[in-house]
């Protein structure tokens, strides 16, 4: 039920991300990366089972132990880590894209050919 809805939503996220990353423009690829990160986080969250129970906190009233059922805390920890890392990556790629736009005067990956020169001469045919 709700899992299906989540699965569909994750699918939409992935489709959007792939579409954007396949674009030529660096800024769209960046947006795609951001969407992709969210898609993965949602996927991990769903993979950790969706519950609507109590938070997994040990209190004195609960007798110093966890009383089932409770929400699975691990996916949340994983997602938090992934969000932080994804954020760092996105920041780096954003600054990089901006610098590349300034220096190479291109937001178009087709015109970024410095590392692979377009009209590279053929290698010598002799030994």
């Amino acid at each position: 039920m709700i899992e299906t809805a989540y699965a569909l939503l994750i699918g939409v996220f992935f489709a959007t991300a792939v579409y954007l990353i396949l674009s030529k423009a660096v800024i769209r690829m960046l947006l795609g990366v951001a969407v992709l990160g969210n898609a993965v986080n949602l996927l991990i969250f769903t993979a950790g089972r969706l519950t609507r129970e109590a938070p997994p906190i040990v209190t004195a009233e609960s007798g110093e132990r966890l009383v089932a059922p409770y929400a699975n805390p691990l996916p949340q920890a994983l997602i938090l880590t992934a969000i932080v890392i994804g954020f760092a990556m996105f920041t780096f790629l954003l600054v990089l894209g901006y610098r590349a736009y300034q220096e190479l005067d291109a937001d178009n990956t087709d015109t970024m050919r410095l590392t692979e020169p377009e009209k590279a001469p053929p290698p010598p045919t002799t030994y």
Partner: peptide
Amino acid sequence: DAAVKYGFLNFLATTFFLVALGYLY
């Protein structure tokens, strides 16, 4: 120029790993 290519593709690879990790868990 190189960093744009290296950065995007390697980030994509680790994201694929993360997807596999989510499924595995």
